[in-house]
Amino acid sequence: MSAALALRAEWAKFTTLRSQWITPLLAVLLTTGITAAVQAAYGRVDTSLEDDPAGGIYYGLLFGHVAVVCSGVLLVGQEYASGTVRASLAAVPRRGRFYAGKLLLGTGVGLVVGLLSVAGTHLATAATVGLDLGQPGAGRSVVAGVLYHPLLLVICLGATAMLRNLTAAMGLLTPAVFLGTTFLTALPGVREAAYFLPDRAGLYAMNYRADPAVPYGHWTGLLVMALWAAAAAWGGLVSLQRHDA
């Protein structure tokens, strides 16, 4: 009953603040739009994209997922930046309940963004270079593509709850996802560890084909990301319960 109210409060916060709902919308538009443009322009000629169909299908995600990160950061970070966190906790004083409302909303928003983005990128691919969903790995790639979004969003939401600061969370997470892990995989020695970073592992789960350099299988990649999400969610809860608001 009251947990449902906490979720309804989060939904009301989400719908009454433009930046909160524009950001996930932007994620869908960026991912779908960039995939569509790249497939239309290069899909038929660039063999590197054809090497693994996922490379072309999810090309836009490399940009769109930055907006997913922002969305997760904003859900919690704006409470701290504006100071509404105190009003929120006065309204829902059981912190676990308040946090559950945030997590549920974040997961829901992530799922919707994932479903729309995956549908959009696959439709765009079908309309441009053609799409064969009967290929081995295609079904898993769709499932992983959808789940990547709520998992990434929850990771960022939990991390922001740990940092309790909008600017710090943005400054840390956005470049980490946009640039950081790509650079890290280029460094020998660090590369092996970098494969276990959440976005790397999640993106790998979308690939149709196996990469012998990656030390785990596709489904395991999704599991690695899910473990990160669970850890971040738990860390955020502990931080919220431990600190004065």
């Binding site: 109210l5 409060a9 939904w11 009454t16 603040l17 509404t84 009003a87 929120s88």
Partner: peptide, 21 residues
């Protein structure tokens, strides 16, 4: 001052009302 400037007055009260039914 602990309100989000991007919300309207009604929007601010709406989420508060929702939180307690």
């Amino acid at each position: 001052h602990a309100v989000h400037g991007g919300r309207t007055a009604r929007g601010h009260l709406r989420w508060l009302a929702a939180s307690n039914g």
